[in-house]
């Protein structure tokens, strides 16, 4: 599904990633761990084509992402730290915009009931500028649930979520795994990582251990 061959990236001439290579099969889920500043988010942003890289290559579904038009990475979805949506828009407008960006046409009722599942129903029409961090995190998972993707890169899915928010997100992730979708996440505590992935890769100062 995805094979990354000796990616390296330097910020201000300081090498953050030194020849990272790993591959991920269909349906396999991997958790990346490592202390802050080890380059985990940079690696995810590079795979999502949000950030350029110095050398190496990324093959996603058999196509080299650098050489090929962005349309080929439509099955790859990236959720970063920040919600990545427009603060003046409301939750529904944001979701509609992101869905139409990827040419997915879902009727309103489906969006509404996924929002309802996540308890965002009552504030669905307010601009997301007023949302709390936890609500934004849930909105991201709602967005992931609505999109159709084969592989997803989530940067810390469980950050600033309350108790039932955590169960909701965990339920959805295991649901995705049962649907044989490839997931790679960045997590920090070990026990969460254990029951959510087949493999754990730790990133230590730019090298995969």
């Amino acid at each position: 599904m995805l094979s990354v061959q000796n990616i390296s990236k330097a910020f201000n001439r300081k090498k953050i990633l030194k020849n990272i290579s790993f591959s991920q099969k269909e349906g396999e889920s991997i958790v990346f761990m490592g202390r802050n500043g080890a380059g985990k988010s940079t690696l995810f942003r590079i795979i999502a084509r949000l950030m350029t890289y110095d050398n190496g290559s990324i093959i996603f579904q058999g196509k080299n992402l650098l050489k090929v038009k962005p349309i080929h990475s439509s099955k790859l979805f990236y959720l970063g730290h920040s919600p990545g949506m427009y603060h003046p828009f409301s939750a529904i407008e944001n979701l509609n915009f992101l869905l139409s960006l990827r040419k997915i046409y879902k009727d309103q009722s489906e969006i509404l009931d996924v929002l309802d599942q996540f308890g965002l129903m009552e504030s669905a029409n307010e601009p997301i500028g007023v949302y709390s961090e936890g609500m934004l995190q849930r909105l991201k998972i709602v967005c992931a649930q609505l999109m159709d993707w084969d592989m997803i890169l989530i940067d810390e899915p469980f950050s600033n979520l309350d108790k039932d928010g955590l169960d909701l997100v965990q339920k959805h992730i295991s649901f995705w795994r049962s649907q044989n979708k490839t997931i790679s996440m960045i997590l920090h505590n070990k026990n969460h990582a254990e029951n959510f992935c087949d493999r754990i890769l730790t990133l230590e100062s730019g090298i995969i251990k």
Partner: peptide, 12 residues
């Protein structure tokens, strides 16, 4: 704001 550009850039 909210790094909305990242979702725009990663879109196909």
């Amino acid at each position: 704001e909210y790094d909305a550009f990242s979702m725009l850039v990663t879109a196909p």
